[in-house]
Each structure stands twice: as C-alpha cells, then as structure tokens.
Simulated scan of single mutants.
Amino acid sequence: MNTNTAYVHGYLPREARRLCDQADTLAALLHAGTAYPAGSQVLEIGCGVGAQTVHLARNSPGARIVAVDRSEESLAQARAYVTEQEPEADVTWRTADLFHLPFEKAAFDHIFACFVLEHLRDPDRALAGLRRLLRPGGTLTVIEGDHGSVVFHPDSLHAHEVIGHQVRLQAAAGGNALLGRELQPLLTGAGFGNVVIRPRTVYADRTRPTLVNGFTRNTFIAMIESVRDDALGVGLTTAADWDRGITDLRRTAEGDGTFHYTFFKAVAVNPLS
C-alpha cells in the first residue's frame, strides 16, 4: 500500500484473525474462477498477513507467486501462515511500496489485488503502474467491497450510521470504502481492456450459520467495531449513539436477522498493443 495512506483497520492481532476468517469464509465466493497455470508468474499486491495468498496458492498449484506488502511484520506473519497452510506453495515475499515496486516491465503474467485499492489515495496511478508490470495479454484481477451495498433486517438508522462512520474514517485516511462500484471506469481509465465485473453477493440468515458467524459477525461487524475509538476520538459520534448502532447491527446476526453485502470482482486484460 501507499506509505502515505493509513490502514484504517489497524494492525492488531485481532485484525489478522479477522482477515484470515474473512478469507476462509469467502474463499469459494471470491476465488471461484481464479486459477493460474503452472509456471505462471503471479504478483499479489498488498498481501498483508497472507489471508488471500493461501487461496491463490491452493487454487493454482505450480504457479510462482510473488507476494508484496509494505509491512515487514505482516509479511513475517504471512510467511508463517502460508507455510503452515500450504507448505508446497511457491511464494516469494517482498517488502515494497505499491507505488515503487522493484520489478521489470512486463515481468508478470497475472496480477491479483484483493481489498487493496480501497485504501489508496490514488488508485488510478496504482493501476497504471501495475499495468506496466503486466505482460501484454496478461490479466489483472481486482476484488473490492462496497459498504453502500449493505442491506439488513431488522433495518436500523443507527446501525447504518455506525457503518457510515467507518466509511468517513476511511475516506479521511485517504481511502474509499465504496470503491467496488467504481472498478469498471477505474480499470478502463487505466488502459485495461476486456474489463468484466462480476458482483459476488453474500447473504446470511439463520439457514446459513457459517456465513452468519464467519461473515456477518466475525468479518463485517468486527470491522466496524474496530474503529470505535477513532470515531469517538474525532467526534463523529457519542458513546451512547455508537453502542446503540452496534447493538442494532449485531441484531442482524440473531435468529430472525438477515444480512446482505456485495463484493465486486473485476478481471481485465493488458492489451496487446
């Protein structure tokens, strides 16, 4: 990620657990259709603690993955996690800033970026740089969420407000929690061709307990809860209003609650000319 951009969710151990829980819960949804041939040179940017790297390696045995993150601490966690989960994976770990990647032009057959662009002040410039590293005819896969896609029952203005606080905090840090809806124009504007966007929807209710726990509680609500101190600290809300909103949000994971969220998965091609 850009060193000028703060990661609004923080780097505490609970965030690493949340990322891994999220990746495992959503693996079938987000990684379906993503598999690279043996011998392919694949770049994963913003790999963090390796939560998505595990699934990249699992779906593409024999691919040569270069996983990059700016945080040496995160890379150490990623190396240990992937070694434990996928000991045969061919992964090279590199510490680097997304805007200063130490690779030659057209060095990669494929590039994968999951939940990265949403944290950048200048995703257009990042995409232009990534296109330079991709061989002609190579593919870029980008996955992003969009907090504006949240729909739940029982509905609650107070719950929507705490989600809005997270969106505002991410924007203040230079990111965009609503980026999913912008992927098509972003990729097209960066010069990629054959841009295909596929919405990937998560819907959870009592008949899908794995998603209720893995996504509604442990991924989405946990993410919103993690910014409480920041929201209070900058005066976006009061403790009473925050607690009321979180209580209502948690209500969506109870027996008669439902929760819906849409991710956007884009696949684009670096044109041959």
Rank of each mutant, 00 (worst) to 15 (best):
N2R: 02
N4F: 08
Y7I: 05
V8K: 05
H9S: 13
Y11P: 09
R14Y: 00
R14C: 00
A16E: 08
A23P: 13
A28M: 06
A32G: 15
T34N: 10
A35G: 11
A35F: 07
G39M: 03
G39A: 07
S40T: 04
Q41T: 02
V42W: 00
V42G: 09
C47I: 06
G48M: 00
Q52P: 02
S60L: 01
V66Y: 03
A67W: 04
R70I: 14
R70L: 02
A76D: 13
Q77G: 14
A80Y: 02
A89R: 01
A89H: 03
D90L: 15
R94Q: 02
K105S: 14
A106K: 06
F108T: 02
F112P: 05
F115C: 12
F115Q: 08
H119P: 09
R121D: 15
R125D: 13
R125M: 12
A128C: 09
A128Y: 06
R131Q: 09
L134C: 09
L140N: 11
T141W: 01
D155C: 04
S156D: 14
I163H: 04
Q166P: 00
A173V: 03
G180R: 13
G180C: 11
P185W: 01
P185A: 09
L187W: 13
T188W: 00
N194W: 01
N194D: 15
V195F: 11
I197H: 08
R198T: 15
R198D: 15
P199R: 07
T201N: 12
T201K: 02
D205P: 04
D205A: 03
D205M: 08
R208Y: 09
V212P: 07
G214K: 12
R217Q: 11
N218D: 15
T219W: 01
V227M: 01
D229H: 06
D229Y: 04
L232R: 12
L232W: 12
G235E: 10
A239N: 07
R244D: 11
I246A: 11
I246D: 03
I246L: 14
D248Y: 02
H260G: 10
T262Q: 11
T262W: 00
N270W: 05
P271W: 06
